[in-house]
Design a protein around this nucleic acid. Structure first.
Lengths: 152, 152
DNA sequence: ATACGTGCAAAGTATTTGCAAACGG
DNA sequence: CCGTTTGCAAATACTTTGCACGTAT
């Protein structure tokens, strides 16, 4: 008789981020920990200001400079993606360790942000990068238009 | 006997922009004219500062505020596209009247910017927008990576 | 003539940096 | 202890706005 035991190791993004930070030689501190905890609960991108305000609303007061420093550090380790949806405002979202990601669809009317992913799109992007001999590190795709509600 | 005369009207982007501005009810002035002339000579996107410096180098001194105002107005009429390649810095490029456009490939190493366009990519984007019932107004695609030179 | 265009300076917004104090390993 | 992290304030970078004056139509 054979028994097969499968252990599924589920590590949340926040845990993953803490692990990678430790591995990179960083110490831990309250401000960055708060940023990680907050980001881990987001399903889509947030701006530094939103993050700052969100933490304040939870009672954790963190200097805005520390928010930016934490985000920089996380981006450096590829733990967050920077997303530019509005000009002049950077948004950040947790990056999945397995490279899984999505893109954004923004409604010009109501500002609503939806996400999507599309294998054909991804293949087209890889093909373009390959044909120009670029080692692709990141890619951003933003679609803008009027959603069904805003058109009716 | 029938004679068919085909007149191919080639209008430069700058001429087209002037025409559209006039049609929109705008008057003409030195600052905006300098911006249009400068943009018309660009093959790819430039920032407001680059444009301002470029004009100054040519001896045409234009207030930076007028540069921004001209760019806003041109963007409003869809005569220029705004392009975000770096966070916190908007670039502008002439928009072809026929909707023809390209996307950008940025080298993380040397900062070089190349352009590309790809029909498969465009179709994939249209399909995504359609499936979500969005009337697509614009789309931005930026690929980032290391170019062949920077990898060797 | 009258609104639009322009330049300057001031204000605004997002982000970064200098520095001294607090803190973690 | 010693180097990292943090908060504050000041600095920076880019862009917008207020206002007085010039200019095109």
């Amino acid at each position: 008789m054979t028994m097969r035991i499968t252990i599924i190791l589920v590590m949340s993004w926040a845990e993953h981020a803490r692990t990678e930070l430790r591995r990179s030689g960083a110490r831990s501190g309250g401000a960055r920990e708060a940023v990680i905890a907050y980001l881990g609960e987001q399903h889509c991108c947030v701006s530094a200001q939103e993050l700052h305000d969100g933490l304040r609303a939870e009672g954790r007061t963190v200097g805005i400079a520390s928010v930016y420093r934490a985000l920089d550090q996380l981006a450096e380790l590829h733990l967050v993606h920077r997303v530019d949806l509005d000009r002049g405002l950077t948004r950040y979202e947790p990056a999945q360790p397995d490279g899984e990601h999505h893109h954004h669809l923004v409604c010009d009317g109501c500002g609503k942000v939806e996400t999507f992913d599309d294998p054909v799109l991804e293949r087209a992007l890889s093909r373009v990068a390959g044909s120009r001999d670029y080692a692709l590190a990141a890619h951003d795709v933003v679609l803008r238009g009027a959603c069904a509600d805003c058109r009716s």
